[in-house]
Design a protein around this nucleic acid. Structure first.
Length: 503
DNA sequence: GGACGGTGAAACTTCAGGTTGCCTC
DNA sequence: GAAGTTTCACCGTCC
């Protein structure tokens, strides 16, 4: 059935969105980048009148962060017209806000990336798939059929509507035929085992040995031969070669060792036992890729009684876990290269050769490191967005990962008995978590005190716990508010409220 | 004549998502 | 590969 809609603009997404609203329904628009999601939402919003009943919602979106970023403003400006964008760069509060208000019907159109296709269950009358191609390492690739199905599956609300509409936007006849062939008639892709990815294999193999599920090379091979991976791979010789290679690495790095059986039975006369070392056990518990662990250990050994924060942050930025790293633009490269030259002897890892492929990753790691440095230097999210083009949601995600790696680094230091560095790591973790300078660390031990309050206390001269004890309750109330002030006094062992009541 | 603003073409840049650990009154 | 952004040349207007 061919259905005509009103064309008020050259942009099909705008026409479809406006039509959806006009017939009293909602739509999700799927695009291939965060920037597109934002722009697309703004384009639709521009064609819509402001709705005063959405003022409160607008304010909530704006106030999700202590200080609104440009992204918050853009979102708020869309929301007041019943339109929103949704992607991984949003603060989780904003994501929830958008999802909840789409469910209640206040938000009519969401322009989103794949966050919505996979993770969130938000049905709508229309699923509009604007982009069926997405950037990949090989250039632009069609999105998998399975992903199209997930997006299209959002169309139609069970129990509320008899049907839904999934629409792919095609620029010409050729694109239309391709879309029908690939997505409407196409079979979803077969599922492949992820075990074949080396970091996963390394982690998995180590955990098998740690948990004593497989205690010899033969048993390891036997175990893997029964996996889904082997089923797909079929070539057992090649499989054996890969597993052997990984096993040798684990041994070389000191996470696994061979042990000749002391009680030789008739059946396993030549069997060498595989045993995880203490270090190997801890790494497996920490769920870090063994290669990352090896890289961290090498870095720790290069540190000599004193480390700068940037050295530690750079060490963890050069791990697979931290990827994708922030990308250095052509115009920025010189600046970061200068930084490398200036600190040449200070890195805890070897700097890749300029002509090696890894050099650009190292350059990116410097940018990521400097982003963390700015964060712990108390720059706000808007500054990070402007300088590094990293959005608040991604900033939080990166910080979480960095924190986890620093925790891993601390645990490894404990096993290796490198005691002096542990305090440094603990301090850095606090600074990274809250995004503060070192001077605020003592105040952050208190409950109810974070980045903002610790800074205002500090700037009013309250810099330590003992100074907090000395300060008058009324003055404290002026700085952090009534409830927090009382709470703080309680925490430092002064129950000021009961004292006041007694007076 | 110079400052300024508007316009459009060319050059340049950038491009999804998101698991894991520990502690504590 | 393509959308989106930035840069730059060009032109017209105004003081």
């Amino acid at each position: 059935m061919i259905q005509k809609i009103e064309e008020t603009s050259k942009n099909d997404v705008i026409n479809l969105s406006l039509d959806t609203i006009q017939i009293g329904k909602q739509a999700l628009v799927f695009v291939n980048s965060k920037r597109s999601a934002e722009k697309c939402a703004e384009d639709v919003a521009r064609k819509r009148p402001k709705d005063d009943s959405l003022n409160e919602l607008r304010e909530s979106a704006l106030k999700a962060l202590p200080k609104p970023t440009k992204q918050c403003e853009r979102l708020a400006n869309c929301i007041e017209k019943g339109i929103a964008f949704h992607h991984a760069g949003l603060h989780h509060l904003q994501k929830e806000l958008i999802e909840d208000n789409f469910r209640t019907g206040k938000i009519k159109i969401i322009c989103c990336t794949t966050t919505m296709a996979a993770g969130v269950d938000l049905p709508a009358f229309r699923s509009i798939i604007r982009d069926v191609k997405r950037f990949s390492q090989r250039g632009m690739d069609y999105i998998p059929t399975i992903e199209y199905h997930q997006a299209a599956g959002r169309a139609g609300r069970p129990g509320m509507e008899d049907f839904g509409e999934a629409i792919i936007i095609c620029k010409d006849q050729e694109a239309k035929e391709e879309a029908i062939e690939r997505y409407v008639h196409g079979e979803p892709e077969k599922i492949f085992s992820k075990l074949a990815v080396e970091p996963v294999l390394r982690t998995y193999l180590l955990s098998l040995i740690v948990s004593k599920i497989t205690s010899s090379k033969e048993k390891v091979l036997e175990f893997f031969s029964k996996t889904f991976w082997a089923h797909h791979y079929q070539d057992m010789d090649e499989l054996e070669r890969i597993i052997n290679k990984v096993l040798e690495m684990l041994k070389k790095w000191g996470f696994v060792e061979d042990k000749k059986s002391e009680f030789i039975s008739a059946c396993d006369i030549n069997e060498e036992k595989l045993i995880a070392t203490d270090l190997g056990k801890r790494i497996s518990q920490l769920y870090i890729d063994p290669l990352t662990a090896y890289h961290l250990i090498k870095g720790l050994k290069n540190a000599d009684k004193f480390v700068e924060d940037f050295q530690l942050l750079n060490l963890i930025s050069n791990t697979l876990e931290m990827r994708p790293l922030l990308r250095v633009k052509v115009s920025e490269a010189e600046n970061y290269e200068d930084f490398i030259a200036k600190h040449e002897d200070e890195f805890l890892m070897e700097i890749p050769n300029y002509f090696e492929h890894e050099y650009s990753a190292f350059l990116n790691s410097i940018k990521t490191t400097r982003m963390f440095m700015d964060w712990i230097d108390e720059e706000d999210e808007n500054f990070l967005l402007e300088k590094y083009n990293i959005r608040p949601g991604e900033t939080r995600y990166k910080i979480e990962k960095a924190d986890w790696l620093l925790y891993g680094l601390k645990e490894i230091s404990m096993i290796l008995d490198i005691k002096w560095i542990i305090k440094e790591l603990e301090k850095l973790r606090i600074r990274l978590k809250y995004g503060v300078k070192e001077e605020l660390v003592p105040l952050l031990k208190l409950k109810g005190i974070g980045r903002v309050r610790s800074r205002s206390l500090f700037s009013k001269g309250i810099k330590t716990i003992s100074e907090l004890k000395k300060v008058d309750l009324h003055r404290l109330k002026d700085i952090v508010g009534d409830k927090t002030a009382v709470n703080l006094k309680k925490q430092v062992g002064q129950n000021e409220e009961s004292k006041n009541q007694r007076l």
